[in-house]
């Protein structure tokens, strides 16, 4: 088995006096789409933020593309090729679509074995997100929630990442946009990107992910392939419950 793109070892995080994550260990392989699932407050977003270096109090190790990135600052982590799309999108509302993309721009990079990573330009991204191509000079603040969600992903891709952390891509957007987002993730996987996403919507996760880690109260309670989860109604009921 080839070394994982992202390996999380005994990761813990706290917020003030409250401990939120307990000794999480998991992996994302190269070209794999992995879903972190669980109820609200289970620790999915915190896990992603901790990997990205955005939580002040953290213990444990995170290895990315063969390097230990624990303790690095968010910008240093981003410069190693780890992309991050936050759940609340955080588009720069005073900047146009093109300017938003420019903020995310980073040089092209390669995987540890020397193969070049997929690289992105605004033109290529406009092909992936035709909606954005119609409004290159629109201000971020004048876009709908769904359009902002796409811009947020596109902005992350401008950094030519090797792996993308997608926090709740289906939260708070209309079903039609959720569907487009699912199609996009499948496209990105074909390009060779690895993706770690946090998700509550099991239907969405089924459309895109290879494997699943189920979180509850900051701990991993179950792991398996997407197919195993689909069959295992007990696990769905216990940790997600439709």
């Amino acid at each position: 088995m080839s070394a994982a793109m992202l390996a999380v070892e005994n990761l813990s995080a706290s917020y003030g006096a409250a401990r939120i994550l307990y000794d999480l260990s998991f992996e994302v392989g190269r070209g794999e789409v992995v879903a972190l699932m669980g109820r609200n407050g289970a620790g999915k977003s915190t896990t992603i933020k901790t990997i990205m270096g955005l939580m002040a109090q953290r213990q444990g190790h995170v290895r990315f593309n063969g390097r230990d990135i624990s303790g690095l600052k968010p910008f240093e982590i981003a410069r190693l090729g780890l992309g991050f799309t936050p759940e609340d999108r955080r588009i720069f509302v005073d900047l146009t679509v093109m300017e938003n993309l420019d903020i995310g721009r980073q040089p092209a990079r390669s995987f540890a074995d020397g193969t070049p990573a997929p690289s992105w330009s605004p033109e290529k991204l406009f092909a992936l997100f035709p909606n954005l191509a119609e409004m290159p000079h629109r201000l971020g603040g004048r876009m709908s929630g769904g359009e902002q969600q796409m811009l947020a992903v596109a902005r992350t891709l401008m950094g030519n990442p090797l792996l993308v952390l997608l926090d709740e891509p289906s939260e708070g957007v209309a079903p039609l946009i959720v569907e487009q987002m699912a199609n996009t993730i499948v496209e990105l996987k074909k390009e060779g990107l690895s993706i770690l996403l946090s998700e509550q919507n099991v239907h969405f996760a089924q459309l895109v992910s290879d494997r699943v880690y189920m979180l509850e109260k900051g701990q991993i309670r179950w792991q398996g392939t997407m197919a195993q989860l689909t069959e295992n109604v007990d696990v769905q009921r216990a940790y997600l419950t439709v």
């Binding site: 990205m52 955005l54 600052k73 968010p74 910008f75 981003a78 410069r79 991050f84 936050p86 955080r90 720069f92 509302v93 005073d94 900047l95 300017e99 938003n100 420019d102 903020i103 995310g104 980073q106 902005r155 992350t156 950094g159």
Partner: peptide, 24 residues
């Protein structure tokens, strides 16, 4: 300029600018 764009972006959300690889 790019510096100007970074300044305007950071004016709104400096943490996000950092998470996109900019040394805040």
């Amino acid at each position: 300029t790019r510096f100007g764009r970074l300044v305007r972006a950071a004016t709104q959300d400096r943490e996000m600018v950092g998470a996109l690889g900019v040394n805040q």
